[in-house]
């Protein structure tokens, strides 16, 4: 079956600016799916970035510490770190780029450039160089992915809440690390 117009436009885009202009935040569901399928431990493909204090996906590493959230790692092939791009973006010899995750890509990528705002599906293509005018946002696949994304986010908020409660109740000699949270996710989302 042919991909919806929205997906086909993204797939054919040679630059894939949307994959690299900022960090792509992921849920535990995204992390577990990629980790299990690609046999990659979460800390090899994610990084922790600052999260707002009220973020429901913001995890703690210390009871009084700042909240963090997981995003896909970025790589740069320049010595000074310029031109960082999503670690899963394959750079082709002709200068174009393609996603190495395919159907495994995070929910935020699967639904790009749509998001739900006040119950309505809206276009939000900030950072993207493609022309999205005229691309329909009404397709069953997008509806399913947006619904699955909301469900995954709710589940992830519960998992993060359990982790944060554990952090607040713990007192380890060595500080907790992002890797500890990654293992907790693999456990929480285990078969």
């Amino acid at each position: 079956m042919a991909a919806p117009a929205r997906v086909a436009r993204w797939l054919a885009c040679p630059r894939k600016d949307c994959c690299s202009f900022s960090y792509i935040c992921v849920s535990g569901d995204d992390v577990a799916r990629i980790a299990r399928t690609m046999a990659l431990e979460p800390w090899t493909f994610t990084v922790a970035i600052a999260a707002p204090d009220d973020a429901d996906d913001g995890f703690l590493l210390a009871a009084a510490g700042p909240r963090l959230r997981l995003a896909l790692a970025r790589v740069s092939f320049e010595a000074d770190g310029r031109g960082a791009q999503c670690a899963f973006l394959a750079s082709l010899s002709d200068g174009s780029a393609r996603c190495g995750l395919g159907e495994l890509r995070p929910a935020a990528c699967l639904t790009f450039p749509a998001r739900v705002d006040g119950g309505a599906v809206v276009l939000d293509a900030a950072g993207c160089s493609c022309d999205w005018s005229g691309v329909p946002l009404e397709d069953p696949e997008l509806e399913r992915n947006l619904a699955a994304m909301a469900e995954a986010r709710e589940r992830y908020a519960g998992v993060v809440g359990r982790w944060n409660a554990f952090v607040r109740a713990s007192s380890f000699a060595e500080p907790l690390e992002v890797r500890d949270f990654g293992r907790f996710l693999l456990d929480a989302y285990g078969q």
Binding site: E41, V75, A87, A90, L92, R98, G100
Partner: peptide
């Protein structure tokens, strides 16, 4: 290979 992804930890 142009399709090879470079991830953390040398993976």
């Amino acid at each position: 290979c142009q399709f090879l992804l470079h991830l953390g930890g040398g993976q």
